[in-house]
């Protein structure tokens, strides 16, 4: 069984984790076209290379981000989401996240 390094709990069997999909940037839900929105909701890039994914360590409910090569399945690094999401996100009435 594969192992993954949880930034909080250390290396664990992959069965302790829940996959949460690729990290994606949400387009502005009020400004983007229907097509852009549909792509965000339904499409996943399937390019060979390093992908950035959400993973949760199930027993501790801790979400983190893993960078994984989808060809070799090697997990290159894992880190706390605060590394990517550095500040508070707000939605204005005109709909643009700030």
């Amino acid at each position: 069984m594969k192992m993954m390094e949880c930034p909080l709990n250390g290396p664990r069997n992959i069965s302790e984790f829940t996959y949460g999909g690729q990290v994606q940037v949400m387009p502005d839900p009020q400004q983007c076209s229907d097509l852009e929105w549909a792509k965000y909701v339904f499409y996943e890039d399937n390019d060979l290379g390093v992908v950035r994914e959400w993973w949760q360590h199930t027993p501790s409910s801790y979400w983190f981000i893993a960078e994984r090569h989808n060809g070799s399945d090697v997990i290159l690094r894992t880190y706390d989401p605060a590394t990517l999401f550095t500040g508070r996100v707000d939605f204005q009435d005109e709909g643009s996240p700030s």
């Binding site: 709990n9 069965s15 302790e16 027993p59 501790s60």
Partner: peptide, 12 residues
């Protein structure tokens, strides 16, 4: 302390 699984359930 280990937050992990035991007999298919979560355990601390």
């Amino acid at each position: 302390v280990a937050q992990t699984q035991m007999a298919h359930i979560s355990v601390i």
